[in-house]
C-alpha cells in the first residue's frame, strides 16, 4: 500500500515537471451499482483524480472511499466501517495503460485499458474496454466493468448476504483536460 502511494506521488510529481504531456481531472465521476432481489444499492463519487501521460498512454486513478455518497446514510456507514474499512484503506487506486494510445484518432472509439486495481488493500489485474474521445483540449474516458466483491477480501455478513450482489457494476466518466500550473 505504502509503495503504491510513493509510486503515485512520483507519478504526480513527474506530472508537474513536464506539464504539457499530462491530462488530468480532479472531478472525475465513478459509481457502483449492486442489484439484488432485496434491494438496489448505488453510490456516486464525484471527486476522482485521474491522470493520463499522453507521451506513453499511462493512466493513474485515485479514489477516496469516503467520497462515495449513498442514498441512505446507514448504507454509507456500513460500507465505510464494515466492508471496505476506509479508515484502514482510505483509497482505491488504479495504475494502468491505455492500449494503442498513440494511434488514436479524434473520433470516439473503443480502447482496451489494462492494469492493476487496488481496493481494500488487495491488488488485482484488470482489463476493460472504454470509450475514448481524444482532442487537443480534452480526453474523455467512459466505461463500465464488473468487480467481484469477494476478490478484494470484502466480507459481507450473512445477515445481509441477500441484500448485496456478489458482483457490482462500476461505471466511470473521466473528462481530462491539459494540466496547467
Amino acid at each position: 500500500m505504502k509503495s503504491l502511494h510513493i509510486l503515485l506521488c512520483c507519478f504526480l510529481f513527474s506530472a508537474l515537471m513536464n506539464g504539457q504531456e499530462k491530462f488530468l481531472t480532479k472531478q472525475g465521476f465513478t459509481s457502483f451499482f449492486s442489484s439484488s432481489p432485496v434491494e438496489d444499492i448505488k453510490a456516486d463519487n464525484n471527486q476522482v483524480l485521474s491522470i493520463i501521460d499522453t507521451s506513453t498512454g499511462a493512466i493513474a486513478i485515485s479514489i477516496l472511499m469516503k467520497s462515495f455518497m449513498f442514498e441512505k446514510s446507514l448504507m454509507q456507514e456500513h460500507f465505510n466501517e464494515n466492508y471496505v474499512e476506509s479508515d484502514k484503506y482510505p483509497k482505491a487506486i488504479f495504475k494502468g495503460q491505455i492500449a494503442n494510445f498513440k494511434n488514436l484518432g479524434n473520433d470516439e472509439q473503443l480502447v482496451s485499458i489494462h492494469g492493476d486495481i487496488t481496493i481494500h488493500g488487495v491488488t488485482k489485474k484488470i482489463e476493460t474496454q472504454a470509450k475514448i474521445v481524444r482532442t487537443e483540449e480534452n480526453i474523455s474516458l467512459t466505461g463500465t466493468f464488473p468487480i467481484t466483491v469477494a476478490d478484494f477480501k470484502i466480507k459481507i455478513p450473512s445477515v445481509v448476504i441477500n441484500n448485496i450482489a456478489e458482483t457490482v457494476a462500476v461505471t466511470f466518466e473521466l473528462d481530462h483536460t491539459p494540466y496547467k500550473k
Binding site: L12, K26, Q47, L49, S62, L64, M65, K66, S67, M69, P90, K91
Partner: peptide, 11 residues
C-alpha cells in the same frame, strides 16, 4: 472532509 488526493477534499 473525505480525504486527500492532490488536494484536500471537502464535500
Amino acid at each position: 472532509c473525505t480525504g486527500y488526493l492532490m488536494d484536500v477534499i471537502l464535500v
